[in-house]
């Protein structure tokens, strides 16, 4: 077990480096000069050159990359061009907000996705299966910013139950676990949970149906287990794959929530990423993408390790 974890851990190092190169390259491939958006249009050529030297944009790309990696490893992601604040602290705050949102959304999605999936898989081809499949297909296919806006119209505008935007009263950025703040979390989390719910429901349905068709289920019935006993075995067989899908979904939600965070003005990484793109804030963009990518790598690692604990066959591979 321990050797498997260590081996898996060692494997992530080259992956992380590859990811960092891709992050760096992508940002630099994009056309346009990052400084034009912050400098006044009539800035002198000398000022432009000075600014470029200040941010290190005048050096060759490999050197820039090397310096960036070196600094990143020391926890320094540079300074935002737009705000002049360190990227690390901006990112830290946004990351906390997004993490909260994504984890909650994934948990809600996982719970309902598993529920729908198990019911649909167990009662395959019955009306209840069709209903659950219908709900999960809607979950996967509905545009989420649209759903977010609909929910805002219903629960904020019409019913006035929940706030429409922000992460706290009066746009305050400091989070606290009280009702005043948690209220803000509900609508974006529910909106976001629809994505993993649909995907997990469909995965679990297929899984359960596949497991139930295996011969060992006959074996379990043949030794006299009641329905609940058989169900326990099905759950344990389905768990590794379901958890893997959940981990990947969490990864997607961490980075892929730009639209939802924009709709709800949720001060998370997606929101930050959107800002960085529009302002051509290179250090912020690089840093955000890198950290999100690293999160994804770390999640994959965790999923693999948890999976190997649940499924004894994984360790051999």
């Amino acid at each position: 077990m321990l050797s498997y974890i260590l081996k898996r851990l060692a494997l992530t190092i080259p992956v992380a480096f590859g990811v960092s190169i891709v992050c760096f390259m992508l940002v630099h491939i994009a056309p346009g000069d990052p400084l034009t958006s912050v400098l006044p249009p009539d800035a002198s050529a000398q000022l432009q050159a000075e600014m470029r030297a200040l941010y290190g944009f005048d050096r060759p790309l490999p050197v820039q990359y090397g310096l960036w990696v070196l600094k990143t490893l020391q926890g320094d992601l540079g300074v935002s061009i737009a705000t002049g604040r360190p990227v690390a602290s901006e990112l830290g705050k946004a990351l906390g907000n997004t993490l909260m949102l994504a984890v909650l959304a994934t948990l809600i999605g996982f719970l309902f996705g598993c529920l729908f999936g198990f019911v649909a898989g167990y009662f395959r081809d019955s009306w209840i299966d069709r209903l659950a499949s219908f709900v999960s297909i809607i979950g996967v296919s509905v545009p989420h910013y649209w759903l977010g806006m609909v929910l805002v119209i219903i629960f904020s505008v019409q019913l006035n139950w929940l706030p429409a935007t922000g992460a706290g009263p009066g746009g305050s950025a400091d989070w606290a676990w009280d009702w005043v703040h948690v209220r803000h979390l509900i609508l974006p989390a529910v909106t976001m949970s629809v994505i993993p719910m649909g995907i997990i429901a469909r995965t679990v349905r297929a899984l359960v149906a596949e497991i139930l068709s295996q011969e060992f289920v006959s074996g379990l019935r043949a030794k006299g287990l009641l329905d609940f006993g058989v169900f326990r075995h099905v759950v344990k067989n389905a768990a590794p794959t379901a958890l893997a899908v959940m981990g990947l979904q969490l990864g997607y939600l961490l980075g892929g929530s730009i639209l939802i965070e924009t709709v709800f003005s949720w001060p998370g990484t997606g929101f930050l990423l959107g800002q960085a793109i529009f302002q051509r804030d290179l250090p912020l963009l690089q840093g955000t993408i890198l950290v999100l990518a690293m999160f994804f790598v770390a999640l994959n690692l965790i999923v693999d390790i948890v999976q190997s604990m649940l499924d004894p066959r994984v360790q051999r591979a």
């Binding site: 295996q214 011969e215 060992f216 006959s218 074996g219 379990l220 019935r221 043949a222 030794k223 006299g224 287990l225 009641l226 075995h233 344990k236 067989n237 649940l310 499924d311 004894p312 066959r313």
Partner: peptide
């Protein structure tokens, strides 16, 4: 029926690899 299965009558399957639960 569950008491009958395994208690009174039990069964050995053709391929034990398939008939045993892989994760227990």
């Amino acid at each position: 029926l569950a008491n009958h299965r395994g208690g009174v009558v039990s069964m050995i399957f053709q391929d034990p690899m398939l008939a045993l639960d892989p994760v227990y």
